[in-house]
Simulated assay, not measured.
Amino acid sequence: MGRTIVVTGGSSGVGLAAAEQFAALGDDVVLVGRDPQRLAAAVARVREAGGGREPGRFRADFESFAEVRTLADHLLTSLPRIDVLANNAGGMVGEYRRTADGFEATMQGNHLSPFLLTSLLRERLRDARVVNTASRAHVQGKPDPERLAGDPEKYSAWQAYGASKAANILFAAEAARRWPDITSVSFHPGVVRSNFGAGRVVRLFYKYAPGLVTPEKAGELLVWLSTAPKADLVQGGYYVGRDKPAEPAPHARDDALAAKLWERIAEATG
C-alpha cells in the first residue's frame, strides 16, 4: 500500500517534480495549488507519472487563512491518514502587501499558513513526516514575532523572504521538540530553475542563469527526506543535501526565538 502524500505548492517547480516522483513510486498524492489552470496541468502530469492513478487536488491561496482552513477540513474529511505533509508552498512578493488577515503577504504565504495547516492536521500526522521547504536565503532575514505584519516603510522583498524561510527552519526544529511523534525536518532545495522571484530581472535570473538546480533534482531531496528511514534523519534538522544536517544561520537555530515565534503565530492564526 502506497503512502499518502500532501504536497502544497504542487502545481509547479520543486513541488510538482517531487509529486511526479512520489506517484512513480506508487504513492497516493494530493496536489495543492493556487492557480486552477496550473493545478489542472500538474494533475495531468502526476497522473501520467503514476501510470494513470488519479491524484487528489485542491485549490487554495495561502494568503488566506480561511482557504487554508477549508483545505484542512477537506483533507481531514477525505484522507483517513497522511504519511507526509510537504509544506512547499511559497513565493516572493515584490512590494509590501498586507493580507486580508492583517499580515505581511510573504510571511503569511510562506510560513503562517503552513504553520496553520500543519497545526490543523496535527492529529492526522501522528507517526507521520512533515518536510518544510526552506532556503539558504534565510541568512538574509530574521523573523520578528512582534512584527508579523511587517513595516511598509522598511520593506525589502529579499529580507521578507529570508525571514519567512528562517521561520520555516525554526518551525521544523520547534515542531520536533513539541511533537516528538512527528518527524519534522526542513531543507534548502538549491537555487532552482523556475518561475520564482519578484520582478522581471529576478525572474529572468531564475529561468536562465547558469548552474541552477533542476526542479527534478531538488524534488529528489524532498522525496528522500520524505521516504528515508526515520533512523537516517536528525529530528528537527535543516538539510542542504543527503548528508548530515547543515547548520543554519545563528538566528535560525535560536531555540528561544523558535519558541516565541511559535507562541505568537499560534495566537495570530487562532
Score class of each variant (00 low, 15 high):
residue 199 G to F: 00
residue 200 R to W: 06
residue 253 R to Q: 10
residue 205 F to E: 00
residue 189 P to Y: 08
residue 231 A to I: 08
residue 184 S to E: 03
residue 255 D to Y: 05
residue 244 K to L: 14
residue 200 R to I: 10
residue 247 E to N: 15
residue 224 W to E: 15
residue 183 T to S: 13
residue 182 I to Y: 09
residue 222 L to E: 01
residue 215 P to G: 07
residue 219 G to E: 06
residue 188 H to C: 01
residue 164 S to C: 02
residue 201 V to Y: 13
residue 159 Q to K: 15
residue 244 K to E: 15
residue 179 W to H: 11
residue 254 D to A: 13
residue 240 V to A: 14
residue 180 P to D: 07
residue 191 V to P: 03
residue 178 R to T: 06
residue 164 S to Y: 05
residue 223 V to T: 12
residue 226 S to V: 07
residue 203 R to A: 06
residue 189 P to N: 07
residue 194 S to P: 08
residue 248 P to N: 09
residue 209 A to L: 08
residue 228 A to R: 02
residue 231 A to K: 14
residue 252 A to L: 13
residue 234 V to M: 08
residue 247 E to C: 14
residue 239 Y to I: 00
residue 193 R to N: 06
residue 210 P to D: 02
residue 213 V to E: 15
residue 223 V to E: 08
residue 160 A to L: 01
residue 250 P to E: 14
residue 196 F to A: 01
residue 166 A to Q: 04
residue 211 G to F: 09
residue 222 L to V: 13
residue 183 T to H: 12
residue 228 A to T: 04
residue 211 G to D: 11
residue 211 G to M: 10
residue 242 R to I: 02
residue 209 A to P: 08
residue 229 P to Y: 10
residue 208 Y to V: 12
residue 250 P to S: 14
residue 233 L to K: 03
residue 185 V to P: 00
residue 241 G to T: 13
residue 161 Y to D: 00
residue 218 A to C: 07
residue 187 F to G: 01
residue 204 L to H: 00
residue 213 V to S: 15
residue 182 I to L: 15
residue 212 L to Q: 11
residue 203 R to T: 05
residue 160 A to Q: 04
residue 223 V to G: 07
residue 207 K to D: 07
residue 213 V to H: 15
residue 191 V to N: 09
residue 178 R to H: 08
residue 208 Y to K: 14
residue 165 K to D: 08
residue 178 R to D: 08
residue 236 G to A: 11
residue 238 Y to G: 03
residue 191 V to D: 06
residue 228 A to Y: 02
residue 211 G to T: 11
residue 189 P to H: 07
residue 227 T to I: 12
residue 201 V to D: 15
residue 168 N to V: 08
residue 235 Q to A: 14
residue 215 P to S: 10
residue 193 R to T: 05
residue 246 A to K: 11
residue 181 D to K: 10
residue 225 L to A: 02
residue 213 V to I: 07
residue 191 V to S: 11
residue 203 R to N: 06
residue 176 A to L: 06
residue 173 A to N: 11
residue 205 F to C: 00
residue 249 A to K: 09
residue 228 A to S: 06
residue 210 P to G: 07
residue 172 A to N: 13
residue 183 T to Y: 14
residue 238 Y to P: 01
residue 240 V to L: 12
residue 209 A to E: 03
